[in-house]
């Protein structure tokens, strides 16, 4: 099973009622403590270690203090984000606090109102849609599943 198989799969309730589609797959990434960035961080250049080493390390330091970057280990599946429609472009606004540039986030949020998180334990079956007329991948939720808020922690 691949993440790409789950994305855009139809989501069915325990009784087979269509609920929407899988918008995203939520994972928990193990993070490691790491005082030093170590070698190789960024878009770094080969073949020039000798002459421009110093500049390189400055480069790395300047960058890593800006964008988020973690040392990571294993990635465990936590659950599925279920939305009313395919995520399409610029997905993710409904799960973050970003509000600018107006009006892009506002429009995307409107399109994805009603997205919720379902725990992986509450997924009863994943069907690959190989059977005739099944119409692609689908996911069936277990009885008593909970609709959790979709925000990223």
């Amino acid at each position: 099973m691949n993440v790409g198989d789950l994305l855009d799969a139809r989501v069915l309730g325990p009784d087979g009622v269509p609920l929407g589609v899988v918008v995203d797959v939520r994972l928990a990434l193990e993070t490691r403590d790491e005082p030093d960035d170590g070698p190789g961080g960024r878009e770094d250049r080969e073949d020039r270690e000798d002459s421009e080493d110093r500049k390189d390390s400055e480069h790395d330091a300047a960058l890593s203090s800006r964008a988020r970057r973690d040392a990571v280990g294993g990635a465990v599946v936590l659950g599925l984000l279920v939305g009313p429609r395919r995520a399409g472009s610029y997905h993710g606004y409904e799960r973050t606090q970003v509000r600018s540039p107006w009006p892009v986030p506002q429009i995307v949020r409107r399109l994805h109102r009603g997205t919720y998180l379902v725990r992986w334990q509450d997924v009863a079956a994943v069907d690959d849609g190989a059977a005739a007329g099944a119409g692609g991948w689908s996911v069936r939720l277990a009885p008593g599943y909970a609709e959790l808020p979709p925000e990223l922690g």
């Binding site: 203090s65 800006r66 964008a67 988020r68 610029y90 970003v98 600018s100 540039p101 892009v104």
Partner: peptide, 15 residues
Amino acid sequence: LVVANDPEYMGEHVN
């Protein structure tokens, strides 16, 4: 324009 506003990419350098 969208990414220039995303703090995960831009940190303090967002638009």
